[in-house]
Amino acid sequence: MAQTPTTFEVDGTAICTKRMQAGMEVQQLAAAAGITASYLRKLERGDRTRMRPGNYQALRAALEANETELLAPHPGPHERK
Protein backbone atom coordinates (compact mmCIF):
# COMPACT_ATOMS: atom_id res chain seq x y z
CA MET A 1 0.00 0.00 0.00
CA ALA A 2 1.36 3.43 -0.99
CA GLN A 3 2.13 5.80 1.83
CA THR A 4 0.98 9.44 1.70
CA PRO A 5 3.95 11.81 1.45
CA THR A 6 4.57 14.07 4.42
CA THR A 7 4.68 17.08 2.07
CA PHE A 8 3.93 17.80 -1.57
CA GLU A 9 6.29 19.90 -3.70
CA VAL A 10 4.08 22.28 -5.65
CA ASP A 11 4.51 24.45 -8.75
CA GLY A 12 3.56 28.03 -7.90
CA THR A 13 3.13 28.99 -11.55
CA ALA A 14 0.70 26.12 -12.08
CA ILE A 15 -1.30 27.18 -9.01
CA CYS A 16 -1.46 30.79 -10.20
CA THR A 17 -2.44 29.77 -13.75
CA LYS A 18 -5.17 27.44 -12.51
CA ARG A 19 -6.48 30.12 -10.13
CA MET A 20 -6.67 32.71 -12.89
CA GLN A 21 -8.35 30.22 -15.26
CA ALA A 22 -10.95 29.68 -12.54
CA GLY A 23 -11.49 33.45 -12.34
CA MET A 24 -10.58 33.57 -8.66
CA GLU A 25 -8.74 36.22 -6.67
CA VAL A 26 -6.04 35.14 -4.22
CA GLN A 27 -8.34 35.86 -1.26
CA GLN A 28 -11.18 33.81 -2.77
CA LEU A 29 -9.03 30.75 -3.39
CA ALA A 30 -7.34 31.00 -0.01
CA ALA A 31 -10.74 31.09 1.73
CA ALA A 32 -12.03 28.17 -0.35
CA ALA A 33 -8.93 26.11 0.45
CA GLY A 34 -8.83 27.08 4.13
CA ILE A 35 -5.37 28.65 3.90
CA THR A 36 -4.23 32.24 4.32
CA ALA A 37 -3.89 34.59 1.36
CA SER A 38 -0.31 35.27 2.47
CA TYR A 39 0.55 31.57 2.31
CA LEU A 40 -1.07 31.26 -1.13
CA ARG A 41 0.89 34.27 -2.44
CA LYS A 42 4.14 32.70 -1.16
CA LEU A 43 3.27 29.46 -2.94
CA GLU A 44 2.49 31.25 -6.20
CA ARG A 45 5.74 33.28 -6.04
CA GLY A 46 7.78 30.17 -5.25
CA ASP A 47 8.84 31.46 -1.83
CA ARG A 48 7.19 28.33 -0.40
CA THR A 49 7.28 25.09 -2.40
CA ARG A 50 5.96 22.46 -0.02
CA MET A 51 2.48 21.83 1.33
CA ARG A 52 1.17 19.38 3.88
CA PRO A 53 -1.22 16.75 2.51
CA GLY A 54 -4.38 18.29 4.00
CA ASN A 55 -3.66 21.75 2.64
CA TYR A 56 -2.65 20.32 -0.73
CA GLN A 57 -5.86 18.28 -0.99
CA ALA A 58 -7.96 21.32 -0.02
CA LEU A 59 -6.21 23.49 -2.62
CA ARG A 60 -6.67 20.83 -5.28
CA ALA A 61 -10.36 20.53 -4.43
CA ALA A 62 -10.88 24.30 -4.51
CA LEU A 63 -9.27 24.47 -7.97
CA GLU A 64 -10.81 21.20 -9.19
CA ALA A 65 -7.28 20.07 -10.11
CA ASN A 66 -6.20 16.49 -10.71
CA GLU A 67 -3.67 14.67 -8.51
CA THR A 68 -0.56 15.95 -10.27
CA GLU A 69 -1.61 19.21 -11.95
CA LEU A 70 -0.24 21.44 -9.19
CA LEU A 71 2.91 19.46 -8.43
CA ALA A 72 6.38 20.68 -9.35
CA PRO A 73 7.81 18.89 -12.37
CA HIS A 74 10.61 16.47 -11.65
CA PRO A 75 13.22 15.72 -14.30
CA GLY A 76 13.28 12.19 -15.61
CA PRO A 77 16.31 9.91 -15.13
CA HIS A 78 17.84 11.06 -18.45
CA GLU A 79 17.16 14.78 -18.01
CA ARG A 80 19.59 17.16 -16.37
CA LYS A 81 18.53 19.26 -13.42
Rank of each mutant, 00 (worst) to 15 (best):
G34D: 00
K81M: 10
A37S: 05
A33W: 05
P75H: 09
T6A: 13
V10E: 00
A31R: 01
R19Y: 10
G34V: 12
Y56F: 11
K42H: 12
T6Q: 04
T49N: 00
A65F: 07
A62Q: 06
M20Q: 08
M24R: 04
G34F: 06
M24N: 05
L71Y: 03
D47M: 10
R50P: 12
P73K: 13
N55R: 09
S38W: 02
L40T: 08
G12F: 01
Q57R: 03
R41P: 08
S38R: 02
E79I: 13
A65W: 00
M1N: 08
A2N: 12
R50Q: 05
Y39Q: 09
T17V: 14
G12M: 06
Q57S: 15
L43C: 04
A2K: 09
R50A: 15
D47W: 11
A72V: 09
M51W: 02
R41C: 07
G23F: 10
A72Y: 03
M51I: 13
G54P: 05
N55T: 09
A62I: 01
V10M: 00
N55G: 11
M24C: 10
P53D: 06
A65G: 15
R52E: 11
H74Y: 15
P77T: 10
L59M: 03
E44S: 12
A37G: 15
G46H: 05
Q21H: 03
L29V: 15
K42W: 05
G76E: 08
G34T: 14
Y39S: 09
D11N: 03
R52A: 15
V10I: 07
A14Y: 05
A30N: 10
Y39L: 13
A62E: 05
R48Q: 11
R48L: 02
L29A: 02
